[in-house]
Nucleic acid binder design. Structure first.
Lengths: 216, 216
DNA sequence: ACGGACAACATTGTCAACAATATTGTTCTC
DNA sequence: GAGAACAATATTGTTGACAATGTTGTCCGT
């Protein structure tokens, strides 16, 4: 039973295939560099090849899939070098979002950031790296959201999607949460202080540290 | 005679349609918000609807086209507000590229920047806004290229494509070249001085000025 | 005249079959 | 046995037809 969603409903085939395939790649179900044969995917998802094709084209421009003319598609492998380049872009874009958020966020939204910061501190104290990683994601997402910078948010989400594998690897590294906690708290503090320049600097400092960690 | 390229050659239909359509939008042949009916485009380009469809999906994720389910595609209109948001992203990304270029460029490449800077100065002195605008494009492109930051370059090219209309409008504004010339020269100077921080600051200052001009 | 049901139309979404291309395996020559 | 031409296979690219959906215009009752 390859299908987990009803094929007969109004759910458009292409969108269905797109979502299934994207999730499969993001969850790591597809091995890196694995070949993605249109026919196989079509059967697996219970849609036609045309829909899979459309989904692959879309995923290609999201950077999750690599396509070569007449040769097929594969899950794109992001080298460490590329991961660094991507994270450099994240650095400046998250800096922009942090600065914007420091100005644009409501008081209620700032309180949310503080709450997440406290939870992160607790997660580190309790030695729960998985919880910490989730809160990490949550914090970055909120800051993006509060910035109100739709273009930057879209770019960042695309960039982040390409880094799933590296992020996963990074989160499990011992000592990493302890180091990054302070950086995250600095971001929260500067944003809640409504200091855009300091917020940008804090975000960039954090991402700089991530880059250093990526390089091992 | 709608076709300008031979249909029988090895040129893949989808890529052909993609390129034609992208150029048409970028050249402004398609009015903003114009409806893009798949059948019409297919006939116009001499390819089948499936190829046009694939091209539209790709252009959608490039931000040039807007698609609504079961309702069709249109040329995306970028509001001034969006143009500002896009340019803010450009600001930080070009800042990154300028900083990288200051470190990574070869001496020969730096000389190219200086040459373009001189040509820009001359274009302003001679009162040739079109030449100046072209050199402007050229300078930014070179800096991106010399940075060696492929991810940032890709993002910037996508962002720039969305701004064609606004850029065109901006270039013809009287007095604008005079104002931006100094900013451009500052970018060249700081990069050739191999000072990444100053280069980033100069790039950001320039784009900040562009944002101010966009807002009128 | 006004509003709603309904039918005709236009357009996109999906499908299955066909053509083109690259890869792989085989055979033949030397 | 090694290498090149060649056939066989696998996979993608393309096509035209069909189904589903949204839109527009018309007819009817009030």
């Amino acid at each position: 039973m390859p299908n987990q969603a009803r094929p007969g409903t109004g759910e458009q085939a292409r969108q269905h295939a797109l979502e299934r395939l994207r999730q499969a790649i993001l969850r790591g179900d597809m091995a890196p560099a694995q070949r993605l044969v249109e026919n196989e995917l079509a059967e697996q998802f219970g849609v036609t090849r045309a829909s899979v094709r459309a989904a692959l084209i879309e995923l290609e421009s999201e950077g999750l899939v690599e396509r070569i003319r007449n040769r097929g598609s594969r899950v794109r492998v992001v080298t460490v070098e590329e991961a660094v380049a991507i994270t450099e872009c994240r650095m400046v874009l998250e800096g922009l979002c942090a600065a914007k958020a420091a100005v644009a966020a409501t008081d209620d939204e700032l309180a949310q950031l503080t709450t997440i910061g406290r939870a992160m501190t607790k997660a580190v104290a309790d030695g729960e790296p998985v919880t910490y990683s989730e809160l990490n994601q949550e914090l970055h997402a909120r800051i993006r959201q509060f910035s109100g910078q739709r273009t930057a948010v879209e770019l960042l989400e695309k960039l982040n999607a390409q880094l799933v594998r590296h992020r996963f690897q990074l989160a499990l590294r011992p000592g990493r949460p302890q180091r990054s906690l302070g950086e995250h708290l600095a971001m929260v503090e500067t944003i809640t202080a409504r200091d855009p320049q300091a917020a940008e600097a804090a975000a960039r400092a954090h991402l700089t540290s991530v880059i250093a960690a990526l390089r091992e």
